[in-house]
Amino acid sequence: MISGEELKKLSKLARIEISEGELSDLGKDINSILDYVGQITQINADKEPQMNADKVLINIMREDENPHEGGEFSSDLLNEAPNKENGYVKVKKIL
């Protein structure tokens, strides 16, 4: 069960402002979901040793080459930024 305090902390971590009024509904919903999906915490999922052996995970790499022309996409991308100045995305001071 997630408490109201935990929920507040989680929403802060997730960078989502939740109003006090919404907290109890959200808590109810999330706890009912956890109640259902919690069945997996009870499963004994000890796997056969050979199971991971043929799990095919391969890295896909490419050469770092043929860069596009500098600035080719800048104005299109900057057009989408809510705040900008002189070709930069503008954010609030953090220090």
């Binding site: 989680l10 929403s11 971590l13 997730a14 989502i16 959200l26 919903d29 999330i30 956890l34």
Partner: peptide
């Protein structure tokens, strides 16, 4: 993010967190 995301999206992000 509080204003931009709807209820189900907020619910799933917090559950995922």
């Amino acid at each position: 993010r509080g204003v931009g995301f709807g209820k189900e999206v907020r619910r799933r992000i917090i559950l995922g967190t």
